[in-house]
Design a protein around this nucleic acid. Structure first.
Length: 153
DNA sequence: GCCAACGTTGGC
DNA sequence: GCCAACGTTGGC
């Protein structure tokens, strides 16, 4: 089993939105590195952190589970969609998405600022903490996963 | 194939 | 609102 982290701006889609809807299709990823991970490496049952970006306290807010493996992101075909990409068509889709199910919301956010305190220790090499990181989907190691889970107890 | 210009991300 | 980092685009 693998572990992941998904970023979302809570103004667009938050952990509370996911909790209300139970599952979601994670559309709109338009980055090749992120796409490749979704398409090639994400498996049913994998767990993922939900990360709130671009908000007052950026950080990890909960856990979700992959319940459907990669399939074409249809929003890329829709000219009216914010994430429309004319270079993607149903014959040879360029962008993919997975389905995620709500698992739990932490009692409080685990702030990015707290995670940064472990940049040189338990969370060394975590892509999220790399300077200038802009990936919206990224892998988490089992050790990092366990360590971060323990932070919210 | 290089690289400058541009747009986007996202923390602060 | 600022700005650094980074990916993409397009002229050459």
């Amino acid at each position: 089993m693998n572990y992941w982290l998904f970023k979302s701006e809570p103004d667009e889609f938050s952990i509370d939105d996911l909790r209300a809807n139970k599952t979601t299709h994670w559309d709109g990823v338009r980055n090749y590195q992120a796409r490749n991970m979704m398409r090639d490496d994400m498996k049913n049952g994998d767990l993922a952190f939900f990360y709130h970006s671009n908000t007052d306290i950026p950080g990890i807010v909960g856990v979700m589970k992959i319940v459907k493996e990669a399939y074409p992101d249809h929003t890329a075909f829709d000219p009216r969609d914010k994430h429309h990409d004319p270079k993607s068509d149903p014959e040879s889709p360029r962008w993919f998405m997975v389905d995620l199910r709500y698992v739990r919301k932490f009692r409080r956010v685990i702030p990015l600022a707290l995670l940064r305190e472990f940049t040189d220790g338990d969370l060394a090499d975590m892509p999220l903490l790399r300077r200038g990181n802009r990936l919206s989907v990224m892998p988490v190691t089992q050790k990092q996963w366990s360590f971060i889970q323990a932070l919210c107890d």
